[in-house]
C-alpha cells in the first residue's frame, strides 16, 4: 500500500469515498422515509388512524416490551422460521438424494414435483390446521411446505450439474454409489446448499407468517392479524417493522454461515 503510486492511492480513495457515500445515502433514504411518514401524519396529510406513524409504532413496541410480550412473539416467529427452514432443508436434501439415486424415479416423479412447485402452498394452510391443530405444529408445517419444494429442485439440479468426470473418477476406483454420494455429490454441492438455504430462509418466513395468520396465539403474524382486527394500526406497523428486522437478521446469519464455509474450503 505504501509503495503504490499516487494515482493508485487516488483510485483507492475514490473507491472508499464512493462506498461511504453509498452507505450514507442508504441511511438517509431510510430516515427520510420514516421522517416523511411522521410529518405527513402529524400534519394530517394522511389519516394517522389508518396509517399510524413511526412514533406510535415505537410506543406500541415499547408497550409490548414492557408487558414482556415482545420477546414471546419474536421468539415464536424466529423459532418457527428456523425450525421450518432447518427441517425443510433436511427433508429437501434427503428427497433430492433419493431423486439422484434413482434416475428412473426422478423421471417418474418429475411431473408431481412441477405441480407441487407451482401450486400456492398457502392454500394448504387450512388442511394443516385441521390435521395438526392451531399453533406451533401447523405453523412449522406451513413453513416447511412453502420452502421444501424449492430446496428439492435446487439441490437435485445442483447434483445433476456436477461434472460427470468427477463421478467417473470415483467409478474408476471402484466406488459404490454410497461412496460417490459421500465423497463427491455432497461435498461438491455445499455451495448449492447455501444458495438453497438463502432462498428457503425467506420462503420459510413467508410460510411462518401465513401460518400465524391462519391460526396461532403468538408470533408477529398473529400480532398483525390481531392488530388489524382491533384496528390498532400502530401495532400492525410495529409488527411489520419487526418482521423486516427479523428477515434481515436471518438473511445476514445465512451470509455469515456462507462466509465461514467458503473460507473454510
Amino acid at each position: 500500500m505504501n509503495n503504490s503510486s499516487p494515482e493508485h492511492q487516488a483510485y483507492l480513495r475514490g473507491l472508499k469515498r464512493q462506498a461511504r457515500l453509498k452507505r450514507l445515502l442508504q441511511v438517509i433514504i431510510l430516515i427520510g422515509l420514516f421522517a416523511l411518514w411522521e410529518i405527513a401524519a402529524v400534519n394530517k396529510w394522511i389519516n394517522p388512524f389508518i396509517f399510524s406513524q413511526p412514533t406510535k409504532a415505537w410506543e406500541a413496541t415499547v408497550r409490548l416490551a414492557q408487558r414482556g410480550e415482545l420477546w414471546v412473539h419474536l421468539g415464536y416467529t424466529v423459532g418457527e422460521t428456523v425450525a421450518g427452514f432447518t427441517l425443510g432443508t433436511l427433508i429437501g436434501i434427503v428427497f433430492a438424494i433419493m431423486l439422484w439415486w434413482s434416475d428412473f424415479m426422478s423421471k417418474v416423479l418429475d411431473p408431481y414435483i412441477v405441480v407441487l412447485n407451482s401450486i400456492p402452498k398457502v392454500a394448504l394452510g387450512p388442511l394443516f390446521i385441521v390435521w395438526l391443530g392451531t399453533g406451533l405444529k401447523a405453523v412449522i408445517a406451513m413453513a416447511i411446505a412453502v420452502s421444501v419444494i424449492v430446496t428439492i429442485m435446487m439441490m437435485h439440479n445442483g447434483f445433476k450439474e456436477i461434472d460427470p468426470n468427477k463421478i467417473k473418477l470415483l467409478r474408476t476406483f471402484g466406488a459404490s454409489k454410497t461412496q460417490t454420494l459421500l465423497k463427491v455429490i455432497i461435498p461438491a454441492s455445499v455451495p448449492t446448499m447455501i444458495a438453497a438455504l438463502k432462498v428457503s430462509v425467506g420462503l420459510s418466513l413467508v410460510g411462518t407468517i401465513v401460518g400465524e395468520f391462519l391460526g396461532s396465539k403468538a408470533g408477529l403474524g398473529y400480532l398483525i392479524i390481531y392488530g388489524g382486527q382491533i384496528f390498532n394500526m400502530s401495532l400492525v406497523m410495529a409488527a411489520v417493522i419487526l418482521l423486516s428486522l427479523v428477515s434481515v437478521v436471518l438473511y445476514y446469519l445465512v451470509s455469515v454461515l456462507e462466509e465461514r464455509i467458503i473460507h473454510h474450503q
Binding site: D163, N165, K166, K168, T172, V184, P187, A188, Q265
Partner: peptide
C-alpha cells in the same frame, strides 16, 4: 489405474 483428461482434484 485410469488417468482422465484432467486432474479432477477435488477443490474441497
Amino acid at each position: 489405474g485410469y488417468m482422465l483428461q484432467q486432474d479432477y482434484l477435488f477443490e474441497w
